[in-house]
C-alpha cells in the first residue's frame, strides 16, 4: 500500500518559514541602524516571544537564570540573552568584554541563525568548527532544545503581538514602530534569502554568507565606532499602552 505523504498546512508552514529567533534581528544590522535604536525593538521582541512561547522559558527553568552571550563574529555587536523567568531580556552590546555570561556562543551569523532555528541539531552543533562554545555546555544544550521546541517565528510573533496595522499599540510604539516597519521589511528580505530551498547546499550557503558579509562589511563603517565597552542603552518601558 502506498502511503501518501501527509502534508498538513502546518508542515508546509514549517517548511516554508523558518521559525525566526531573536537573533534574526541581527538582520537589522544589515541596515545602518544605530545600535541604540535597536534596543527597544529587541526588548519588545522578547516580550512578544515570552507571551507567545512560555514553554521556551519553562524549558530553561532547570538552569539557574542563565545568561547567554550570542556573538555573531561577523556583526558589529553581540547580544546578551538573560533568562530571568520573570523578565527575560535581550540586550545588544557593542563590546562584550567584561560580561560574565553562563555561556558564550560565537560564530558567523548564518551559523547562529541555523543553530537557533533548529536547522543545526543538538549533536551537529558541535561538529562545526565555525561555532565556538564557551562556558556551561549544559546551558547551551538547554537553550538549543528550548528554542527548537518553541517554534519561534519573530516576524509572526511580533506582528501578532502588535495587533492590526494602525492599532494604538503600534502607533504608540513611537521610535520602535518606525524601526519596526523597516526591520520587518529587512527581516522578510532576510527570511526569503534564508528559506531558499538551496539552503542545504553549501555553495548557496556560501553565496548567501558572502552577500551578508558584504553588507556587514559596509555596515562596519557605520557610526558605532568609538563606542566600545558600552552596553546599548536599555529602554525600560516597552509596553506603552
Amino acid at each position: 500500500m502506498k502511503r501518501s505523504q501527509p502534508q498538513t498546512k502546518r508542515s508546509q508552514a514549517q517548511a516554508g518559514a523558518p521559525p525566526l529567533t531573536p537573533f534574526l534581528l541581527a538582520g537589522l544590522a544589515l541596515r545602518p541602524v544605530p545600535p541604540a535604536l535597536l534596543q527597544p525593538f529587541l526588548t519588545f521582541s522578547m516580550r512578544a516571544i515570552e507571551r507567545r512561547h512560555p514553554s521556551l522559558f519553562e524549558r530553561l527553568s532547570g538552569v539557574e537564570e542563565p545568561e547567554f552571550l550570542i556573538d555573531p563574529t561577523d556583526l558589529p555587536f553581540a547580544f546578551l540573552l538573560s533568562i530571568d523567568p520573570l523578565l527575560p531580556t535581550l540586550t545588544a552590546y557593542t563590546d562584550a568584554e567584561g560580561l560574565e555570561p553562563t555561556a558564550t556562543i560565537r560564530g558567523p551569523l548564518m551559523t547562529l541563525v541555523h543553530l537557533l532555528e533548529g536547522r543545526i541539531d543538538g549533536d551537529a552543533m558541535f561538529f562545526s568548527r565555525d561555532l565556538v562554545i564557551e562556558g556551561d555546555t549544559e546551558a547551551v544544550v538547554a537553550l538549543r532544545n528550548a528554542v527548537d521546541g518553541a517554534e519561534i517565528d519573530v516576524v509572526e510573533d511580533v506582528l501578532a503581538f502588535l495587533g492590526p496595522l494602525g492599532s494604538p499599540a503600534r502607533i504608540a510604539f513611537q521610535v520602535g514602530a518606525a524601526i519596526f516597519s523597516r526591520a520587518a521589511t529587512d527581516m522578510e528580505t532576510l527570511r526569503s534569502a534564508l528559506i531558499a530551498p538551496a539552503l542545504k547546499r553549501s555553495e548557496a550557503q556560501a553565496a548567501e554568507l558572502k552577500d551578508l558579509e558584504d553588507k556587514v562589511a559596509g555596515l562596519s563603517q557605520e557610526p558605532r565606532r568609538g563606542r566600545r565597552r558600552m552596553p546599548v542603552k536599555k529602554t525600560k518601558k516597552t509596553d506603552t499602552e
Binding site: 508542515s11 517548511a15 533548529g118 543545526i120 541539531d121 543538538g122 549533536d123 551537529a124 532544545n145 517554534e151
Partner: peptide, 10 residues
C-alpha cells in the same frame, strides 16, 4: 534521536 532537533526529525 529524541535529543535532535525537529528539522532532523522531519
Amino acid at each position: 534521536g529524541r535529543q535532535r532537533g525537529r528539522a532532523y526529525v522531519a
